[in-house]
């Protein structure tokens, strides 16, 4: 039995369903709930069971060749992880550096990562954009955006 995409996916979901079912026991019940026909644990247990059944079916049944999958470029997979890392860092830096600075850095670094090397483009497509968007939110739409925490340090 080869480990095809389908079987690998099935194994992942099997693991997920078993773990999900295991943690269903941790859901607190109200006194007397155990005797009710339906309580907070009921659906999670059923879903876990269904998940196990479908995962096993996916693992056991003959895989069907998919015609929709397109080849992915390995270098671009790294690019995707890089962009996701930038997004994560954006969320960490946002409260500390404030909206305009964080957004400018995030956009400029993302442009650079995706292949933009012209310094003028890197600056003009990020800093003015971030400032205009920030002004639009705070001055026109009256949305409150907390100032950078570093300013108060």
């Amino acid at each position: 039995m080869n480990l095809t995409k389908d079987r690998f996916g099935g194994l992942l979901f099997l693991l997920l369903s078993v773990t999900y079912g295991y943690y269903a026991a941790d859901i607190p019940l109200l006194p007397g709930d155990k005797f009710e026909v339906f309580h907070a644990q009921t659906l999670p247990y059923w879903l876990s069971g269904l998940g196990v059944v479908f995962s096993v079916l996916l693992i056991v049944l003959k895989p069907v060749a998919s015609s929709t999958s397109e080849p992915l470029f390995k270098s671009n997979v790294l690019l995707m992880f890089g962009l996701m890392a930038f997004t994560f860092l954006f969320s960490v830096a946002l409260p500390w550096l404030g909206f305009p600075i964080t957004t400018s850095i995030f956009l400029a670094s993302s442009y650079w990562m995706l292949g933009e090397r012209r310094p003028k483009m890197l600056v003009f497509a990020s800093v003015p954009f971030a400032l205009v968007f920030w002004l639009l939110l705070t001055q026109v739409l009256d949305v409150y955006i907390a100032p950078a925490r570093l300013l108060f340090w």
């Binding site: 962009l83 997004t87 957004t103 995030f106 956009l107 993302s110 442009y111 292949g115 483009m121 497509a125």
Partner: peptide
């Protein structure tokens, strides 16, 4: 390379 970061943003 300009459009995609904007969509992410």
């Amino acid at each position: 390379q300009i459009l995609n970061p904007l969509i992410i943003f």
